[in-house]
Structure formats: C-alpha cells, structure tokens
C-alpha cells in the first residue's frame, strides 16, 4: 500500500471542500471495501477522507410519518439493532446482517455499500425495491436522486468530484406491504452473491396493489426491473402471477459468466430468487 494523506472533516461543507480540492481523494466510512482495494492496488489515492466524524452521516432516524433517514456512514450493526427500524423495515435489518461477519458489520455501512457500486452489493436491490433516494451534497449544493440511478458501471457511481453521499431516505412502509432480499451464495456465509433479488409488495384484498423488483449481480449495476413489478399490479396474489413476474425478472437479467457463476445459471437463479422473495414478501405483507 502506498503512502496517502488522511483527513477527518467534521462537517459536510468541510468534506465537500476537501473532495473538490482533491479529485483523486477517496472517502472512507467503514473501510471494508476501500482498505482492501488500496492494499491490493486496485485503487490508489493521495488522500483518504474519513467521513465518520460528520454528524449528518451518522444520523439514523425513523419516523412513522416521514420514513427512515440513514446516514451514509452508519454501520450495519446500528441498523439491525434499531428496534423501530427492525419493526418497520425487517427486510432492511435482515439484509444489513447479511453483509460480512460481526466484525465487518461493526464498520461496514449501507452508504458505503452503495458508493462502492458493486453489481453484487447486497443492500442495493432492496433499497431500490423500497424506493429509497440518495441525498447528495456537493460544491453546487444538494440534490436527491433515486437509488436505482446512483450506480453507473461496476465500481462507478454518479457522484462528481467534490460530491458526497450524505444519507439515504426510505419512505414509510405502506399498510399491507412487505419486502425481502434473497441472494444465492454457494456457502452460507462469507460470500458474494451469485445473483440476488430484492422485492417489495403492497397488497390489497388478495391482489397486488404495487410491487418493485430489483436484481443483484446480473448486470453492470444493480438492476431495477420495473416491468416485473408493474406486471403484478392489480393481479391476484398467486403462484402464477409471481411466477410470471419472476420470468420477467429473468428476462431482464444481463449476466456474465465468471468465477462466481455462468450467465445461464445466473439467469435461472433470477427467476428462482425473485419468486421466493415475492413469496416471503407476500407472507410478511399479509401479517401487516
């Protein structure tokens, strides 16, 4: 690992100034991706900007009317230990506990998972399914965009030099709604998704009112399959309707063959995982 400078700003404005002045700077939250990349030489930088001391980036607030505000540096363990959040967004709490082991969860953040822009990021399909938005600060002020528009290529996101992801916002859960993220890994822990599916559903008297379906590890970015969710709207909750949505998800997948799986196998998994995630989300929605 080569030498780099380190800065730990205490405000968003200060962080933005540093990032704008050093285009090659890298932001550090938990460091569970960044430090590995720096050590392996996959990334190089002259300045690491630690954002963990900025209050807004550590905010974790749930309000039944306003929804969830999740600071970009909040580590996973705070998410699944937050009682209110666990009740309102059980799928998010569960997904935060999927990432790494206990030690990693003490450092790794959902914001970092998103900014790292890996196609296989576990939290991103669920955030997309939950209609989450990104709140970004930059030299020109702030902006908000949907999570599905944040990643642009493997390892690349929409942030321009000087911009910083401050927080994520998740709308409050609708009545009779449920969500779930399922991934497939060859082991049961310590693994990167071969494919993943995040879904959310809202039910209305045995029918789907609405649904959103997003996939992991089967395209250059996490993939919102809008047509698969839309196809469920108004349809009865049934094996047939969920199977049809799963087939649409599979059709939208554009996977590659690599050491983690073949393209054919990944497409197949998209259908299996989407269907199983829908079944789980429906079961949860029926309980709400």
């Amino acid at each position: 690992m080569k030498w780099f400078d380190y800065a730990a700003p205490r405000s968003v404005a200060e962080a933005v100034r540093l990032l704008a002045a050093h285009p090659a700077a890298r932001t550090l939250a938990g460091g569970t991706d960044l430090l590995v990349q720096l050590r392996s030489g996959r990334k190089e930088t002259d300045l690491v900007v630690d954002i963990k001391r900025i209050p807004e980036l550590n905010e974790l607030r749930y309000d039944p009317a306003a929804g969830l505000t999740l600071g970009a540096a909040v580590p996973c363990y705070r998410i699944y230990q937050h009682a209110g959040l666990r009740l309102a967004y059980p799928a998010l709490a569960e997904t935060a506990s999927l990432i790494g082991g206990t030690q990693i969860q003490g450092r790794a953040s959902v914001g970092g998972n998103l900014c790292n822009a890996s196609p296989s990021a576990d939290t991103v399909p669920l955030l997309i399914a939950l209609s989450a938005t990104c709140h970004i600060a930059g030299p020109q002020g702030t902006r908000a965009i949907p999570v599905e528009d944040f990643c642009v290529a493997p390892g690349r996101n929409i942030l321009t030099p000087g911009e910083l992801l401050v927080s994520l916002h998740v709308p409050p859960p609708a009545p009779h709604s449920g969500a779930r993220y399922l991934r497939f890994i060859p082991r049961n822990e310590m693994d990167i998704a071969v494919a993943g599916a995040g879904v959310s559903v809202t039910l209305d008297h045995g029918h789907f009112r609405s649904a959103r379906i997003a996939l992991a590890a089967v395209a250059p970015t996490p993939l919102l399959v809008r047509e698969a969710g839309d196809a469920l709207a108004g349809r009865p909750v049934s094996a047939e309707s969920m199977g049809a949505a799963a087939e649409l998800a599979k059709a939208a997948a554009r996977p590659i063959t690599d050491m983690r799986g073949t393209a054919e196998y990944r497409r197949h998994l998209c259908a299996v995982l989407t269907r199983r995630a829908l079944e789980a989300a429906v079961a949860q929605a029926k309980g709400n």
Binding site: P186, R187, M259
Partner: peptide, 29 residues
C-alpha cells in the same frame, strides 16, 4: 468436494486467489 477449486482464466491465471472466492467451508456450512 463442494466448492474449492483454482478457477483458471483463459490467460492461465488464478481468478479466485482469496478466501472470499476460494470457498473453504465455514462453520455455517
């Protein structure tokens, strides 16, 4: 038996030279 292998690229290099992608069983398996 189940997961371990040197996954070789077309260039004859090992693609999975880490414990993340060279999958020895964990206690959960």
């Amino acid at each position: 038996a189940l997961n371990e292998e040197y996954y070789m690229t077309a260039e004859g290099t090992m693609a999975n030279a880490s414990f993340l992608d060279y999958r020895i069983p964990t206690c959960y398996d």
